[in-house]
Amino acid sequence: MSVLKRVQQWATFARIWHLYDAAWQNPFYSAELLKKYLMGAHKPIYHPMNDCGDHVIVINSSDIALPGDEWKKRVYFHHTGYPGGASWTLAWELHKKDPTLVLKKAVYNSMDGNLQRRYTMERLHIFPDANVPSNLLSNISNQIKQLRPKPKRLDEYTEKEIQEFPKLIDLPKNHILR
């Protein structure tokens, strides 16, 4: 094996570390995206028996966004096994308890329940904010594009930007400013 081929072999089977910013992203659509990277399904060498999955570091998981009123409609079920041991937790209550759990469960449930699932989940590193340990941060070599752009709040624009933005309507002369 030539030197070049050997390096190609290393590069092919090396695990890559990806970064994903979950701020204002739907965790359930993000799970479908992240699952491909975690399982290695985005690689041409992918095979279920081939251990070629990548690592994904997810930051800002406390800022995930759900559509409409799904925070109070989505319910997580747990049963202790004892009679009367059923409990139902709303998504926002679970998120309040641990801001990484909604995303973690979304990725876990998006994958098929086989023996590989637990090992694939080991490669997912979720952080509620942007504070990632530097030994993990130094591995990152790729960033996964966000599914929807993070919306900019009105108070984040400068006074000048708001004033000089093209206006659709003008206020009538008899309008009283309040």
Binding site: A23, D63, A65, L66, P67, G68, D69, W92, P151
Partner: peptide, 11 residues
């Protein structure tokens, strides 16, 4: 208050 403090978007 409650669930309203978390980020949400609309379709």
């Amino acid at each position: 208050y409650g669930w309203k403090k978390y980020n949400k978007y609309f379709d």
